[in-house]
């Protein structure tokens, strides 16, 4: 039996990023295993240290993205683990499931207090697939087990979604700062509420929201698609573009880590190399 931290990657009907997500978990030095949504006893017996809800779809996004998966019994296990402060990450469709589960922002756990609505920003709507820059809020770096290695410098990560616009009730807009995890910005870290810096119209330029304890994070960009430096396009500006060019010159591009690796290496550091007690 592995002594490495076990990260359960949950596969719902329609998930399509589970295997690459489990793979980057393993490459970051942890044990990444895929569990189907109906493998309830197997998941309970495995008692994972952390959970990732990967990208793709769930139940064909019928009714509303994430709405049906949020009510699955599998989410009872995730909910209990989150209450016990275990790290939970939702990526894209996984983020939609966490929002519909009421796990984020989690001012009252289980109460649905936000939505990931259809992309809508001046001149743009519909599905988006492109590279964006984002950076972490300082408080989030300190609280979130996923962001410990990220710092607050801007990083490029791809997005691919039609419903990624974080919205809250009007009366909650003034209290979101403690749960703001990642925000869209340009390559210099400057936030702007206009396209293309904010690609989908998300309030406060939000790319990720966490719960008040910081252990649960719902993010729309895909860090697993930026795990290796070679996954980044060569035209990326800023520091990460410089890294690509230097790696090409040095012949090290094949093994160089990309910005997405920081999320999973941060989690591995959080566990200190072993399983929970």
């Amino acid at each position: 039996m592995s002594t490495l931290p076990l990260v359960a990657v949950i596969q719902f009907p329609g998930s399509n990023c589970e295997y690459e997500t489990a793979r980057v978990v393993r490459e970051a030095g942890m044990n990444g295993l895929v569990f189907r949504w109906n493998q309830l006893s197997e998941l309970r017996d495995a008692d994972p240290d952390a959970f990732v809800l990967p990208g793709g779809f769930s139940f064909q996004d019928r009714v509303r993205a994430g709405a049906v998966a949020a009510k699955e019994m599998m989410m009872d296990i995730v909910f209990s683990a989150a209450a016990g402060k275990r790290p939970v990450l939702g990526i894209c469709n996984g983020a939609q499931v966490l929002v519909e589960s009421g796990l984020v922002p989690g001012w009252e756990a289980g109460r649905v207090e936000a939505a990931l609505a259809a992309n809508h920003i001046a001149g743009r709507s519909g599905y988006l697939s492109r590279w964006v820059f984002l950076h972490a809020r300082e408080t989030a770096v300190l609280k979130s087990p996923w962001l410990g290695k990220l710092g607050t410098s801007p990083i490029p990560v791809p997005i691919a979604h039609a419903e990624g616009r974080f919205v809250f009730w009007e009366e909650d807009l003034s209290r979101t700062l403690p749960v703001e995890a990642l925000v869209y910005c340009d390559e210099n870290g400057v936030e702007r509420p206009e396209y293309p810096t904010n690609p989908n119209g998300s309030v406060h330029n939000l790319a990720a929201v966490m719960n008040t304890d910081g252990n649960v994070m719902a993010m729309m960009p895909h860090p697993e698609r930026a795990f290796r430096l070679w996954q980044l396009p060569p035209w990326i500006p800023g520091e990460w573009g410089d890294r690509i060019r230097m790696s090409i010159s040095a012949g090290t591009l094949a093994d160089a880590p990309g910005p997405g690796a920081l999320f999973f290496q941060g989690l591995a550091d959080h566990f200190g190399g072993g399983r929970h007690e």
């Binding site: 009714v63 709405a67 009510k71 589960s101 289980g110 109460r111 649905v112 939505a115």
Partner: peptide
């Protein structure tokens, strides 16, 4: 009206 994880399904009132 979806108010909680186990209450409501057809619409999320935050955005609908």
């Amino acid at each position: 009206v979806t108010t909680h994880r186990d209450r409501g399904l057809l619409a999320n009132p935050v955005s609908q």
